[in-house]
């Protein structure tokens, strides 16, 4: 039983990071119709920048966290302006390949600057675990779940209340109508990339605090697909729910199936779930069904 609860807790932590990543992915997809294969690299770059600031320049963690967010926002903003802006209206394969190309470039830049070895964050959170109902839970887990929750709440408020957030939702639901209402659609496109990069960087920083970082961090970007397919590609609620479900399922599979087959189930299980979802309910739990005409 304790094993089971531990798996659930780890799953929730990883799942909340998936949720952040998926939130970024969904934002971009909703607003700009771009399928972002470079989501994991945005996470990786964020994690490395924050680590670099903390370790090499001795910036306090909270400050480097904020600087990273600003940097990520700028990076996302300009990626859209420079690369994705030209791809509007191109076939989906071109857009997919462009983001794949971007992901290669980002990965290469990170490797050139920081090498491929695993690096760890300095001790930011105290290592003494929380004791809850007889279970010891690592402090960084609690903090990451809390931080992710805060971010998710902040973003929901942003979309519900702020002017820019409402404009973003308007663009997502109908670009032409938004344009004729005087919303600057181009700005919204760039903004959504910026915000997506920010949420990914947050995920990357917390992931780095849990496990340390290396360039395999970018594999997280591909895990975002099971999450968004399960939740529904264009649903923000779906991204969060899907992230948690996939994170927990993945850890349960790792805990219970791996010993039977000798490992690897954790990596593959989300994709098996995804295939099942694609076959049964391709638009996911909360997605809108696309209607096609000749």
């Amino acid at each position: 039983m304790e094993f089971f609860v531990q798996l659930i807790i780890t799953g929730t932590v990883i799942g909340s990071i998936y949720a952040l990543l998926a939130l970024g992915f969904t934002l971009i997809y909703k607003a700009t119709d771009v399928v972002n294969f470079a989501q994991g690299e945005l996470l990786m770059v964020g994690a490395y920048i924050c680590l670099h600031l903390t370790v090499s320049y001795n910036v306090p963690f909270w400050a480097s966290f904020l600087i990273t967010l600003v940097f990520s926002f700028t990076m996302g903003f300009f990626i859209e302006k420079v690369f994705l802006r030209r791809m509007i209206g191109e076939p989906i394969i071109s857009i997919i390949m462009l983001t794949i190309g971007l992901s290669s470039v980002m990965k290469a830049v990170v490797q050139i600057f920081w090498g491929t070895d695993t690096r760890t964050y300095p001790q930011v959170f105290s290592s003494e675990p929380f004791m809850i109902a007889g279970l010891s839970i690592s402090r960084v887990y609690i903090y990451s779940i809390a931080a992710v929750a805060v971010f998710l709440v902040l973003f929901s408020l942003f979309f519900k209340k702020s002017k820019v957030g409402v404009a973003m939702r308007a663009v997502a639901s109908d670009q032409q109508a938004a344009l004729s209402m005087g919303i600057d659609v181009k700005k919204i496109f760039a903004l959504s990339w910026g915000i997506a990069a920010v949420v990914s960087a947050v995920g990357g920083i917390f992931l780095g605090n849990i496990n340390g970082i290396n360039t395999t961090l970018s594999h997280f970007g591909l895990k975002v697909f099971p999450v968004v397919i399960l939740g529904g590609l264009d649903s923000i609620v779906g991204a969060i729910v899907g992230g948690l479900i996939i994170g927990i399922l993945e850890n349960l599979a790792g805990g219970y199936i791996d010993p039977l087959i000798g490992g690897g189930a954790k990596e593959i299980f989300p994709y098996v779930v995804m295939i099942a979802v694609l076959m049964i309910k391709p638009y996911g739990l909360f997605g809108t069904k696309a209607v096609e005409k000749v």
Binding site: F83, M97, I100, L102, V105, K107, A108, Q111, I112
Partner: peptide, 19 residues
């Protein structure tokens, strides 16, 4: 770093062709 450079150039070539 030639391995990383290869990957970076590969990505860059894709991007440039697409653009």
């Amino acid at each position: 770093i030639i391995g990383s450079i290869k990957e970076g150039v590969f990505g860059l070539v894709i991007i440039l062709f697409l653009m």
